[in-house]
């Protein structure tokens, strides 16, 4: 079964997401800050990364995503966003933001599972 890395500075979100994905049979690893997350992804090479956009700093998640891509880590990234709609800018997947899809917090379990499955399917096809 696929290995999913959850990166968020909110332990409650990590726990809730972990529970949802574990119930679907995925293996989960998690990290609470960008440095820890970077090491974890390099070491364990997960099939999918779930990344919160704002950690210590607004955009920390973006910088981490860019860092992964710069270093050739092509693992699909699903980004958790929380205030993009509130403050009026919408991120779309594209070159500037090197992530594959977005989930707006609060996360509904069904939506999370759906997006994770879709990205993993794409990932499998891509690696075939």
């Amino acid at each position: 079964m696929a290995l999913i890395a959850i990166i968020d500075d909110d332990p409650d979100i990590i726990e809730a997401s972990t529970l949802v994905l574990k119930s679907k049979g995925y293996d989960i690893i998690s990290a609470g800050n960008p440095d820890e997350a970077y090491e974890m992804v390099k070491d364990q090479n997960p099939n999918l990364i779930i990344l919160d956009v704002m950690m210590d700093e607004p955009d920390d998640g973006f910088f981490l995503a860019q860092k992964f891509r710069r270093e050739g880590i092509k693992t699909p990234i699903l980004m958790y966003t929380s205030v993009s709609k509130t403050i009026g800018f919408e991120y779309g997947s594209g070159e500037m933001v090197p992530v594959d899809d977005f989930v707006e917090k609060p996360i509904s379990p069904d939506q999370l599972v759906e997006k994770v499955e879709a990205l993993l399917k794409k990932e499998l096809k891509g690696s075939e």
Binding site: D10, D12, I13, A16, S82, P106, I107, P109
Partner: peptide, 10 residues
């Protein structure tokens, strides 16, 4: 709010 909603949904 996101954390609490996440727990409740679970």
């Amino acid at each position: 709010i996101a954390a609490v909603l996440g727990f409740i949904k679970l």
